[in-house]
């Protein structure tokens, strides 16, 4: 067995040293050039809340925020996270165990069923909140007021859900913005 383990280690890929902010803390690791952020988050930092739904950028379950912009972490090369600010669903939770208003609204409005899409949904919604909070303009775009239901639909188009039929998720989003107003 020991013999075999040694051999495994002998499989070498060129490694890149990257550093970034992960949920408010500065972290660094070595990663190969082809590694995607999703795998680094899940396997290196063992944050399992970011879900692998398709690994091809179609389902949105792995959505995380990179400098407040939602990305499919399964398509985002880990080396590109160097120097960036990454927020995963674990980072939404407050230190005292209370939920972020986005999470709380999803829970209270029955928007979570099996939950496998829920982290990605929460992160996408968080990005929308950022856009409307004005504090974190995305690509120069600062939005005023609150988003319409149609705008929320459009925003969540990249997040698939098989359980809820999206209605409760949209309700949660609408109420979140109404409460924030």
């Amino acid at each position: 067995m020991r013999e075999r383990m040694k051999k495994v280690k002998s499989v070498q890929y060129p490694q890149h040293e990257i550093s970034f902010i992960l949920n408010g803390k500065k972290v660094s690791c070595k990663t190969k050039g082809s590694a995607v952020l999703l795998d680094v988050i899940r396997d290196v930092f063992e944050l399992k809340g970011t879900k692998p739904g398709c690994h091809e950028g179609e389902c949105g379950a792995c959505t995380v925020l990179v400098d407040n912009v939602p990305v499919n972490s399964c398509l985002f090369l880990a080396v590109n996270a160097d120097g960036k600010n990454i927020l995963t669903v674990e980072g939404l939770l407050h230190a005292d165990g209370t939920l972020d208003p986005v999470q709380e609204s999803l829970v209270q409005n029955g928007a979570v069923q099996c939950g496998f899409c829920s982290s990605g949904m929460a992160m996408s919604l968080k990005a929308l909140v950022h856009q409307y909070e004005n504090a974190h303009p995305v690509a120069g775009e600062i939005k005023k007021g609150i988003p319409s239901r149609d705008e929320i639909k459009k925003h969540l188009e990249g997040n698939l859900c098989r359980c809820t039929g999206y209605v409760k998720i949209l309700d949660a989003a609408e109420k979140l913005f109404l409460n924030n107003e």
Partner: peptide, 23 residues
């Protein structure tokens, strides 16, 4: 009563352990 799912919190915080998360 419209009571939210009692396991929803663990599912929306990344605490819930799905088959994919087992190590």
């Amino acid at each position: 009563k419209p009571i939210p799912k009692h396991d929803a919190r663990s599912r929306i915080t990344g605490e819930a352990v799905y088959g994919h998360d087992i190590v």
